[in-house]
């Protein structure tokens, strides 16, 4: 339980999985939940519609362990990707430390990827954050589907300047899920230790 004992400070990092609807954000969290040792994670809370689309968020706390006396913990969230739910997405971004942008490799989702990235920029701006200030990694998901777009094409619409670290994934098979989380966590912790 996260009662704050000041003598034993905790470090809490909020990592948000962002991206268009159906790209596999919730699937990432479910895979992490299934694969990390039980004693290191809390319950997974999913606020979803009847048909398993995220309505508000998924949430799961994950303990890294103690780093130099600080109990270090990640709070993993997903946002609802459907355009319709922007008000909720904005709320979830509050206090974010790191973002995983989960892109969909399906040919008919190229535009949705681009629009979701633009939406991320706008929502961060409303919180007074420049997207360049937040650790952000790109996960290119659903590499297994037929006709999956070339990686370069997806990067070109989401990250034309090629500034982001990226990782291929097949999230429902667990491929690339831990790798992605590790990339973003490392960026977040590095940034922390440099005092922002």
């Amino acid at each position: 339980m996260s009662t704050i004992n000041f003598a034993a400070r905790e470090i809490n990092c909020k990592i948000v999985y962002y991206g268009p609807g159906m790209s596999g954000k919730t699937t990432n969290l479910k895979q992490v939940f299934a694969k990390v040792p039980e004693q290191l994670r809390g319950d997974m809370v999913s606020l979803a519609t009847e048909d398993e689309r995220t309505l508000f968020f998924d949430f799961m706390p994950l303990d890294l362990g103690t780093v130099q006396g600080f109990k270090t913990r990640f709070h993993l969230y997903t946002v609802p990707g459907q355009v319709f739910y922007n008000a909720s997405r904005k709320l979830i971004l509050r206090g974010v430390d790191g973002i995983v942008f989960v892109a969909d490799s399906a040919p008919n989702r190229l535009r949705a990827n681009a629009e979701s990235m633009r939406n991320l920029r706008e929502n961060l701006a409303e919180h007074g954050i420049d997207v360049k200030e937040v650790p952000l990694v790109l996960q290119i998901n659903k590499r297994d589907i037929e006709g999956a777009l070339p990686i370069e094409m997806i990067r070109a619409v989401i990250d034309p300047k090629k500034e982001l670290l990226w990782q291929e994934a097949v999230a429902d098979k667990g491929r690339g899920v831990f790798e992605t989380l590790k990339l973003v966590s490392r960026l977040v912790l590095e940034r922390l230790s440099k005092g922002e």
């Binding site: 000041f6 400070r9 470090i11 990390v36 290191l40 994950l62 890294l64 362990g65 780093v67 130099q68 600080f70 270090t72 831990f178 790798e179 989380l181 590790k182 966590s185 490392r186 912790l189 590095e190 922390l192 230790s193 440099k194 005092g195």
Partner: peptide, 24 residues
Amino acid sequence: DVPAIEFDDDFGANAASLLDDLLG
């Protein structure tokens, strides 16, 4: 407000090795 945490130089390295343990 909570006073800011002062991080030690080794913090990044220690955290990274824990990440390796946790996520392979």
